[in-house]
């Protein structure tokens, strides 16, 4: 089964062809719209949508050419139909629906979070269901028990900012350029967190997260610190350490409560080495294995969309069709069987 997928939920335009049973990427392209959004200090939905339309035809053609296949060799066409930016989702969805219609093949409406949730299963053939997933992206911070394809239980989520969003906002406060989140890690590398007091977010026994208070605490440091705060490596380090500890603590509680033997982290923030290290430690403490997909699968990509779509298609689970509308909000629990 070969799935052609498109991902346009935010500011990456991505296409891929995946051999789903073989868990093999046959071809893929990702165009990062970073240069388009950088002057605005954040993602501008209208600019993202324009860039998706400009880039998709070329990326789709290149992906097919690289795979060595013809359109007739594709089993089905998929696109991220949510969650994400409405006007951006519409582009990939419309394009993929048209490819499906013109080729007389099914269109598979695919949930972006489900793509992330199943991406570790694509990357690691040793990984079996069930596993505990910590999803950390610019839009999501969730602890999810992945029991199988279409079988997900959300154990906890953020009550306010997503962790990636918090990294971006704190990075901005520190005077770092867009996207500020990844720059925080670089800055933190030379910092010393000792002596900088930041609050431990939502230090309770629930499995939920909260990061807006932490962001405000960094902002307060900016207001009250007599020294310039911008590009301050020690504040970056203290912030990163606090986030890593918070994620690790709640993940530890989840491992304890579920008795899961496999911990998986996915999403763009999983690229952060300090966070990976903290999670690795907490997994070891609970006797669980730890898996993190390669960076190319952590950030937004179409491989994970193709894989999730293909697994659902093979399992005869609901995959929408040509009439599927985009869903800017689409909780993973609604994908449950």
């Amino acid at each position: 089964m070969r799935i052609f997928a498109i991902e346009t939920s935010c500011d990456e335009t991505a296409t891929a062809i995946v051999d789903v049973p073989a868990r093999r990427t046959l071809a893929q392209r990702v165009y990062s719209q970073l240069p388009e959004h950088a002057p605005y200090g954040g993602v501008v939905p209208e600019i993202a949508s324009r860039a998706h339309l400009e880039r998709l035809p070329e990326l789709a053609a290149q992906t097919l050419a690289e795979s060595g296949l013809s359109w007739a060799d594709i089993t089905a066409f998929a696109a991220t139909t949510g969650p994400g930016l409405t006007t951006a989702l519409v582009i990939g969805t419309t394009f993929a629906k048209t490819l499906a219609l013109a080729n007389g093949k099914p269109f598979l409406a695919t949930n972006h979070i489900e793509g992330h949730a199943l991406s570790p299963h694509f990357a690691n053939t040793q990984l079996t269901f069930p596993y505990l997933l910590l999803l950390v992206t610019g839009g999501h911070t969730q602890l999810i028990m992945v029991e199988g394809v279409g079988r997900y239980t959300q154990l906890g989520t953020t009550l306010d900012d997503a962790v990636g969003e918090c990294f971006d906002k704190v990075g901005k406060l520190l005077g770092l350029p867009h996207p500020a989140g990844p720059q925080v890690e670089k800055l933190a590398a030379t910092g010393n967190p000792q002596g900088i007091k930041l609050p431990s977010p939502l230090h309770d026994t629930s499995l939920n997260f909260s990061f807006s208070g932490l962001k405000t605490a960094v902002k307060d440091l900016l207001t009250h610190n007599p020294q310039p705060i911008t590009h301050n490596p020690s504040i970056a380090s203290a912030f990163q350490t606090t986030v890593a500890q918070s994620l690790a603590r709640k993940t530890g509680l989840a491992l304890q409560q579920t008795a899961a033997t496999q911990l998986v982290v996915a999403g763009g923030v999983a690229a952060n080495a300090a966070i990976r290290s903290a999670l690795q430690q907490v997994a070891a403490q609970h006797g669980a294995t730890f898996t993190a997909p390669p960076l190319s699968l952590c950030t937004d990509n179409a491989v994970m969309i193709a894989y999730a779509a293909g697994l659902r298609h093979a399992a005869h689970l609901s995959t929408g069709g040509l009439g599927s509308a985009v869903r800017p909000r689409w909780p993973l629990e609604e994908m449950a069987v």
Partner: peptide, 19 residues
């Protein structure tokens, strides 16, 4: 409509790729 224009063009460009 910005989105409307793009929907029409996305259909046209995808068809042009395949047909």
């Amino acid at each position: 409509s910005f989105t409307g224009i793009r929907i029409g063009l996305a259909v046209a460009q995808a068809l042009a790729l395949v047909v």
